[in-house]
Structure formats: structure tokens, C-alpha cells
């Protein structure tokens, strides 16, 4: 300790100029303005969401009837018809994509969380997975076109599934890893201490502890790709017909397969009222499915995401 403590008495040491307090008015005003701005921004963001949903409901609701789900689209310029084939196609394409990507992503996530951990390979894979999630979906579409459609000389629903699976894979892997990382280590150790083999501990104890998170993650990953359009543009393409069987020109592996998003895209640009109406109907189905499942997952697993 040096002199200063004793050398100055009273507020403000002698050699220093007296303090001139600043008024708080401006600072408080700026703060208040930012608060207002924050509320406006948040309200605007949510308002846009409601505007979009409202618009889709308003324009799409009239298209929805029984036939919408069961019938083929009408011939251009005519009335009636539905998007039955497209809805079915989307369900099949998405289902197959999930069938491929969810187990792979799941085990990939297990490897990252349980085996790879902080090793060099795992760190690399994790990095690649994160980057992968940012690859534009159109690029994935182009990739599958070049890898699958072009060599086989035909579009197919299966190619669409592969494109969607490609997008799902890193999402599922990282989600699984993140959730497994939340499982306390004691749980693993107690399982292993009981002499159970690693795979049983992981699949039995760890996964069971994390299952609601895993289900949420899997469903949300699936729902997300179900709404994708760009990866299907040059893979599944589209078709005015029903999906018929597996092979052959109208089969899942053999030819273009109708799907909801591409159909909506095509129809929305057509200058025919009925086609546009169907497009809005399709949009309504998509938005109800996507938002509905998101909300449902939240309701079932209350703490789905801590917002």
C-alpha cells in the first residue's frame, strides 16, 4: 500500500478535477428505444408467421375436400381433381428417406457420443456433420442427379429419398449425439459396473434415458425434409400419375414420382385458377403437417426445447 490512501481526504483527490455528472436522460431514452425496438421486432417476426399461415389457410381451405386427398390432379384447364398422388408420393419418399437416414444417423450419433468422443476422427466427423447441415439443399439435389439419376438415365422417387436422406443424416447424427451427451456418465458407469456389455448399456440404459429427446429429434428431422422442394426438383421430379409398384416407369425406383412440394411449386406458377387453388391446398396440407407435428412434439415432450 502506498501513500494515496492517506493523502486524500473527502471525495475526489486534490489533483483531480471535480467530477461533472452526466445526465441519465439520454441513456435511459436509448435503452427505452431499444426495448421498444425489441418488442416490435419480435412481434413483427411472429406476425409474419401468422400472416403466412393465415394466407395459406384462407386461400387453401376451399381446395380441401375428400377428393383432394384421393384424386389425381385435373387436366390443365379443367376443374375438380386433387393431389392424392402427390400426397402419397411425399409420404413414401419421406418414409424411405427416414428409413435410411434415421438408423444411420442414430448409430453415427452413438459413435460420436460414446466411442469417438473427443478423438481426432470424431472431432473431424463432427465438424463435417455441422458443415453438412449447411449445404444448400439444391446442391444435394444436383449431387443426387449427377450420382444417381444421370447414370441410371431416369428420375425416380428413390433418388428423391436418397437426397432427403442425405440431408437428414447429419441432423440425426448430431441430434443423437447432443442428447446422449446430456445423459449423466454415472448411468453408463453403473451399467458397465454391473458387467453388462457396452452395447447393452448404450442401447438399454443410455438410449432409454434419452428416448423422448431422440424421438423428438427424429420426428422433427423427418418433418423438416418432408417440406423440402429443392432436392426433389431433379431427382423425384414430378408426375401426374399414381405411384405404381416399385419398378417400371411409374414405380418408385423406375420413374418420376409425384410429390407434394414440387407439385405445389409447379401449380402455383400456372395461370389457371384451379391449379393455383390446388397449390394453396397443398401448401395448407404441408403447413398443417409441419407446424402441427412441431407443436405436437412440444406438447408431448414439454421441455422439447428450452425457449
Amino acid at each position: 500500500m502506498s501513500a494515496p490512501a492517506t493523502s486524500h481526504n473527502g471525495p475526489g483527490p486534490a489533483p483531480l478535477k471535480a467530477l461533472r455528472p452526466r445526465s441519465h436522460g439520454r441513456r435511459k431514452a436509448v435503452d427505452a428505444a431499444i426495448r421498444v425496438f425489441a418488442w416490435v421486432a419480435a412481434t413483427a417476426g411472429i406476425a409474419v408467421m401468422f400472416l403466412i399461415v393465415w394466407e395459406v389457410i384462407q386461400r387453401g381451405l376451399s381446395a380441401i375436400d375428400w377428393g383432394f386427398f384421393t384424386e389425381l390432379p385435373p387436366v390443365v384447364g379443367e376443374d375438380g381433381g386433387g393431389l392424392g398422388n402427390a400426397i402419397l408420393g411425399t409420404l413414401v419418399i419421406t418414409f424411405v428417406a427416414a428409413l435410411i437416414a434415421l438408423p444411420m444417423g442414430f448409430f453415427g450419433g452413438i459413435w460420436l457420443a460414446e466411442f469417438g468422443r473427443n478423438g481426432k476422427i470424431a472431432t473431424g466427423v463432427r465438424m463435417v456433420a455441422n458443415v453438412n447441415m449447411g449445404i444448400p439443399s439444391i446442391v444435394v439435389g444436383v449431387f443426387i442427379f449427377a450420382a444417381l439419376v444421370r447414370p441410371l438415365q431416369h428420375y425416380s422417387g428413390f433418388a428423391g429419398s436418397i437426397a432427403l436422406a442425405f440431408i437428414m443424416l447429419p441432423v440425426m447424427a448430431r441430434t443423437t449425439e447432443d442428447i446422449l451427451n446430456l445423459v449423466p456418465n454415472e448411468l453408463r458407469e453403473s451399467g458397465l459396473a454391473m458387467g453388462a456389455p457396452r452395447w447393452r448399456v448404450t442401447l438399454g440404459v443410455v438410449i432409454r434415458a434419452a428416448r423422448s429427446g431422440l424421438i423428438t429429434g427424429a420426428v422433427l428431422a423427418t418433418v423438416r425434409v418432408a417440406g423440402e422442394t429443392a432436392p426433389l426438383l431433379f431427382t423425384a421430379l414430378s408426375s401426374p400419375y399414381w405411384l405404381q409398384g416399385l419398378f417400371g416407369p411409374e414405380g418408385f425406383f423406375g420413374g418420376p414420382t409425384a410429390n407434394l412440394t414440387k407439385t405445389v411449386y409447379d401449380f402455383s406458377g400456372m395461370p389457371y385458377e384451379r391449379m393455383q387453388e390446388l397449390a394453396w391446398g397443398g401448401a395448407l396440407v404441408i403447413i398443417v403437417a409441419v407446424l402441427g407435428l412441431n407443436v405436437l412434439m412440444r406438447l408431448i415432450f414439454q421441455r422439447g426445447k428450452e425457449w
Binding site: 419480435a42 417476426g45 408467421m49 418433418v223 423438416r224 417440406g227 403447413i287 407446424l291
Partner: peptide
């Protein structure tokens, strides 16, 4: 949740 729902809306919409 509202903001997150915005993220869930597919780009075609």
C-alpha cells in the same frame, strides 16, 4: 416458440 415456428415453415410456402 413463435419465432421457432417461423423456422419450421418450408421455404416453398
Amino acid at each position: 416458440t413463435g419465432i421457432e415456428m417461423l423456422a419450421a415453415i418450408p421455404s416453398i410456402i
